[in-house]
Design a protein around this nucleic acid. Structure first.
Lengths: 124, 124
DNA sequence: GGCTTAACCTGGACTTTGTCTAATGGATCT
DNA sequence: AGATCCATTAGACAAAGTCCAGGTTAAGCC
């Protein structure tokens, strides 16, 4: 556990946090100016391997990192400003895929992304 | 409708087609050698705006283009080889997000990605 | 047919996101 | 103190995508 890793972990604390690698780097630099981009990428990769942080692909540009890895959830994304909230739908989406639609795959995971417009963007 | 656009449209025909922009370009070049990358990107962007083609983000690297835009569906992705199949789950996932989990958003769309291992990758 | 105009296409430069590597530096062990 | 190990750094590199200046084609109009 080095100072750099602690800073990256600190940046990724909280609910509804979904930062890109560069955003993590920017905030890490604010706390530890000499931290490098490569270290941020390495540390994020390790956190993902350890299962402490999830990669989410809601944005089609850059990967985002979600520290809420221990409570399963899905995402609700504003189509205009890109804000992301963690959400917990009812039911089990895995059960909604009948065997006839599985093409022989062993299905182990589902990722659900809701899209819409957030209250802030909706009010003109 | 120019020759270039026709070629891009032809490349994107069929079921379970999910090509990246560069794959589309490679196949388009086979039919029309002088077609440029920029034109492929422009044409794909127009097809997406027209609603004829969908962008899918199953791969975390490059965007993929799905010509099956008129029949709503979701995707089943092999975690190992990346193969993608179009699937039609039962039920309506939108209904599974209760109002208390909508945070005031106007939710209009859901994207479901199933992950697993395909039969080919499962047999050793 | 020839001219004008608009749209389209091309090639390359550029940006963004992410990965890799060689070299540095700091800790730990003996 | 010396040796060793691992993390970190800076910068080069690669992949994916965007942008722009200029050339070409197509369409309309005389």
């Amino acid at each position: 556990m080095t100072a750099q890793r602690r800073v990256v972990a600190e940046v990724l604390e909280g609910e509804h946090v979904h930062l890109t690698a560069d955003e993590v780097h920017a905030r890490a630099v604010a706390k530890l100016p000499e931290i490098s981009r490569a270290t941020v990428y390495n540390t994020l990769g390790e956190l993902v391997s350890l299962g402490e942080v999830l990669e989410v692909a809601t944005d089609k540009r850059a990967k985002r990192y979600d520290p809420n890895a221990h409570r399963p959830h899905h995402h609700l994304v504003c189509a205009q400003c890109g804000t992301i909230r963690d959400v917990h739908p009812t039911g089990n989406p895995l059960a909604d895929l009948p065997a006839s639609e599985r093409f022989g795959f062993t299905v182990s995971d589902v990722e659900v992304t809701y899209r819409g417009v957030c209250p802030t963007c909706a009010t003109p």
